[in-house]
Simulated assay, not measured.
Amino acid sequence: MPSPLELTASSFGQFGEPAGTFCLITSEDGSGAFALDTAAGGRSGYSDGLMLTLPAGRSLGELLARSVPPDAHVLAVCPGRFLDSPSPEQLGKRKLAVLPAGSTPLTVGHMQYYLRSAAETAIGLQERTADDFFERVATSERLTIVDDSSGSEAEFDHTAGECVWNQQAGPLEPGEQQIFPPGKLSVTANEITAFRPDARLLGLNGELTLHGWPIVHRHADPADAADQQKLFEALSAVVSHPVTLRVAAGAVERITPQTSGGRPAAEALQRLLDDDPRYRVIWELGFGINATTEAIPANCGPNEVYGGPAGTVNLGLGITPTTRFALAFLCRRSSLLTSDGTPVLGARKAVRRGRMQRVSSAGCGCH
């Protein structure tokens, strides 16, 4: 195991100004991987530091409510544990950030990388990027997702049906929780953690290109780990060999590999759709805006925040535990454009424009 990574609480800008207690929560598998600067005052800036282990059989929400001061800033990094989001009553006025370390097989080295990356993330810049995104999306009736390399194009009319916009980026307010590292914006057809098989992004139509590292989340059953890895390996063909999805009213109608090298990924995805039609739903249209965190070439859930220099489009299919796995695909060559062709993010350069309300809530439910 790598040497313990010492965390200085004040390094994580999403919590805002240090005040009161900073609490690091980890699991038994994480003991020895992290150390917390708990000196009162000192360089941490907090009056107190608290490091807790989440016992087997106890939920994160229960531990928060029973053992963590009511106004604490809390970072949860629990290797091997799937963390369900605490209720608003359990969270109270605490600020909570969760590094998803149970739904994908993160190594200690991966987790330490994401923690260091989060400490380097410019939260103020990220907030301005999010504001810019929502302002320009709000003033455009329709959006277009294009992949200039393959020629694929999909239109997204976000005024069609119900859309919930989510922000997992920028500073936290009391009572809010966020993924860690921060840096993802998204839109879903329903509350992000409450899957409805009949919900659709009705205005999403056309072709989308998958080209980048896939992510395969599982829920709490360790027996799913072998099939999770097998599926990830098959889908990883899209890193070098793009696959096109034909989408109508927010549901996948056809999967086509652009070259023969993409056939294993297309076939694996087609089997999932045939076995469980709920995977046909584009559950989440996501946008990574973290410009500091690189995409790790492995099955790593936090890769979803990867934004590169200009933001990255990603797609989400399925949601655990409703579906056995939840899939996310980075679309690194794609761009999001407004109705007049102005790039919002992605491979084409973005410019500034208007304002939109969004929800700061509990990540994707795949902790």
Score class of each variant (00 low, 15 high):
Val108Tyr: 02
Ala130Val: 05
Arg246Cys: 11
Thr144Leu: 05
His219Ala: 15
Gly102Trp: 01
Pro181Ile: 13
Ala40Leu: 10
Ser10Phe: 07
Ala40Tyr: 07
Asp147Glu: 10
Arg218His: 12
Met51His: 14
Leu83Gly: 01
Gly341Tyr: 12
Tyr113His: 10
Ala130Trp: 02
Gly346Asn: 06
Asp148Gly: 07
Gly288Arg: 07
Pro277Ala: 02
Ser11His: 15
Ser240Thr: 14
Ile145Lys: 01
His73Ala: 14
Pro182Ala: 14
Leu231Gly: 02
Leu50Met: 13
Ser361His: 13
Val216Gly: 02
Ala194Leu: 11
Ala220Cys: 04
Val146Gly: 01
Pro214Tyr: 02
Arg43His: 05
Gln229Asp: 10
Ala119Asp: 05
Asn314Thr: 11
Glu304Met: 02
Phe133Asn: 04
Leu273Val: 08
Leu269Ala: 03
Gln357Phe: 09
Gly365Thr: 12
Asp131Tyr: 02
Arg58Asn: 07
Gly41Asp: 12
Gly318Glu: 06
Lys95Leu: 06
Leu106Met: 14
Thr104Ser: 14
Ala248Leu: 14
Gly307Val: 04
Thr256Cys: 11
Ala118Gln: 05
Glu191Pro: 01
Arg196Lys: 15
Asn290Met: 12
Gln112Phe: 10
Arg43Lys: 13
Ala56His: 15
Gly363Asn: 11
Leu54Val: 06
Ser27Gln: 05
Pro105Ala: 05
Gly13Ile: 08
Ile255Arg: 08
Thr323Glu: 11
Ala19Tyr: 07
Lys230Asn: 08
Asp340Phe: 08
Ser152Leu: 02
Ser59Ile: 08
Leu115Tyr: 01
Ala248His: 15
Gly261Tyr: 04
Leu231Val: 06
Leu91Trp: 03
Ser236Leu: 09
Ala225His: 09
His367Asp: 11
Ser140Thr: 13
Ser152Pro: 04
Pro88Lys: 11
Ser47Arg: 15
Gly365Cys: 12
Pro105His: 12
Ser186Met: 00
Ala310His: 09
Leu330Ser: 09
Ser3Leu: 13
Ser186Asp: 06
Cys331Phe: 08
Leu337His: 01
Gly49Tyr: 01
Glu191Trp: 09
Phe195Ile: 09
Ile145Tyr: 01
Thr53Ser: 11
Asp276Asn: 15
Leu83Ile: 11
Val313Phe: 08
Val351Gly: 03
Ala234Ser: 15
Ala118His: 02
Gly41Thr: 09
Phe180Gly: 01
Gln177Glu: 15
Gly311Pro: 02
Gly32Glu: 10
Phe156Pro: 06
Tyr279Cys: 08
